[in-house]
């Protein structure tokens, strides 16, 4: 599978990942190579095989419905790039 520079740009946008224009071709080449490697999977028949999402065959454990967390806003927000009045600030969201 060969990815074009255009493919790389659209995937990068989906992932909101800035890629330097000058590097796009190199990414396209690397990713195409990885996809070629990946496509070796096609060599084995998997009809009827159950997909395996987890290594362990366990059910989800359930938590009791209890409030166990307390307010740590100030502690957490020390890490934030921009806050005001307890809110995280981001560039204007337009709907």
């Amino acid at each position: 599978m060969a990815l074009t520079a255009e493919n790389v740009n659209s995937i990068a946008y989906l992932a909101r990942l800035g890629i330097d224009e000058k590097d796009v071709e190199a990414y396209a080449k690397d990713l195409s190579g990885i996809l070629d490697l990946v496509e070796q999977m096609g060599s084995v028949e998997t009809e009827g095989v159950l997909p395996m999402a987890h290594p362990t065959d366990q059910p989800q454990r359930l938590r009791e419905d209890e409030v166990t967390e307390h307010d740590q806003r100030d502690y957490f927000q020390k890490l934030a790039p921009q806050v005001e009045a307890g809110l995280y600030l981001v560039p204007k969201v337009i709907e």
Partner: peptide
């Protein structure tokens, strides 16, 4: 929250 925070949006 779209009230004006100097042209920014606040997230709760």
């Amino acid at each position: 929250l779209h009230e004006d925070f100097h042209g920014l949006t606040g997230i709760d």
